[in-house]
């Protein structure tokens, strides 16, 4: 194994350990103070039933959902930054958050949430899929070769359209629906259940493997489509596959946790600053770093002002910005 390959595996191992450690920390601490013995008792099935409910049914699925959503968003962000050759690209750049939010707001405004707890996430997921279909439809109609500049413009246009839809629905909704919509748009992992973890993992983990399999092609695409094509990459196939998979991962994340900003933008950049741009390293490490980042951000959101929960987007921005600036400074030194 080459020294570079050895370093990559060391980094994967270290971040893998960090994921496990962050999940254990998120299970150990929460808004209700429990001792280590109580948490261990709950995990082993011998503790107080209420402690078991808190640890096994609330904290553990929530931490695992943060792994899936945080990892998925970071992975999607790294992929889109390469494909669109745009450092500002993030998972929501193709209008996905707008579609999901419009569907969620419409569901709240029409009072459809009363039908069951699955309605809101399902509506957000469907809204995200509609946005993806619109963006790809517009881009393909303009240019069959799926020009990334056209795709970006289509994303902006579709996103703006959905922003208008959201504003219209909010203007026509009652105050309670507006309040509910605002809370949903802030993003939260509070709805985590074992069922949602399973659904999220079913989408995200195979998608992650597909994207990692495209790592070499993404390296070439990041240089330029012509170069990639010249070196034997089926550019159109890679673009469609990678964009489609990254969008689906994002849609699943939005459906389960609302719009959580910053993870998909900053984590890939932070990983790139640490290990370079080779996607063979960047993609798996972004997934692991995104997972650790969101698990810890959610933990802070839960405990900082307990029992009140801070919107997770506040934590990802407050913790992520200084961390990113520190990495940026160190990389320049």
């Amino acid at each position: 194994m080459s020294p570079a390959g050895g370093r990559q595996w060391t980094a994967v191992l270290l971040l893998g350990v960090a994921v496990v450690a962050s999940v254990l920390t998120a299970v150990r601490f929460g808004s209700v103070p429990l001792s280590s013995a109580q948490v261990l008792g709950a995990l082993s099935g011998t503790g107080d039933p209420i402690h078991r409910e808190i640890v096994v049914q609330l904290r553990l699925p929530r931490a695992l959902l943060a792994v899936v959503v945080g990892g998925g968003l970071a992975l999607a962000g790294a992929t889109l930054q390469a494909l669109l050759r745009n450092p500002l690209a993030e998972p929501y750049i193709l209008g996905i958050s707008g579609g999901a939010a419009a569907a969620a707001v419409l569901t709240l405004g029409l009072g459809l949430v009363a039908a069951g707890s699955w309605v809101l996430p399902a509506a957000a997921f469907v809204g995200a899929l509609v946005a993806i279909a619109l963006v790809f439809g517009v881009a393909t109609a303009v240019d069959h070769s799926l020009d990334v500049r056209v795709l970006l413009l289509a994303g902006v246009v579709v996103g703006t359209f959905f922003t208008g839809v959201i504003a219209l629905v909010l203007a026509l909704s009652d105050a309670p629906a507006v309040r509910g919509a605002m809370l949903w748009m802030m993003g939260s992992l509070g709805g985590a259940q074992w069922r949602t973890v399973l659904v999220g993992a079913t989408y995200t983990l195979p998608a992650g493997l597909v994207l990692i399999a495209l790592a070499r092609s993404l390296d070439l695409m990041a240089i330029g489509e012509e170069t990639a094509s010249f070196l034997g990459t089926d550019v159109e196939r890679v673009k469609r596959t990678a964009l489609g998979v990254a969008s689906l991962v994002t849609a699943a994340g939005v459906g389960m946790a609302g719009v959580i900003g910053f993870v998909g933008l900053i984590v890939p950049h932070a990983v790139r600053l640490s290990v370079g741009s080779a996607h063979r390293k960047l993609l798996p490490l972004s997934f692991l770093a995104g997972a650790v980042f969101l698990v810890l951000a959610d933990l802070i959101a839960r405990v900082a002002l307990a029992p009140t929960e801070i919107p997770i987007g506040v934590v990802t921005a407050f913790v992520g910005v200084p961390l990113f600036l520190l990495l940026l400074r160190r990389s320049h030194q």
Partner: peptide, 25 residues
């Protein structure tokens, strides 16, 4: 958006909550 952990630990036998889209969860 009450903390479910805190609600559980209080062992309530009745929770009175807002009905409507402001709190769907």
């Amino acid at each position: 958006r009450p903390s479910l952990e805190h609600l559980l630990i209080l062992e309530p036998d009745l929770v009175i909550r807002y009905e409507g889209p402001q709190d769907p969860s």
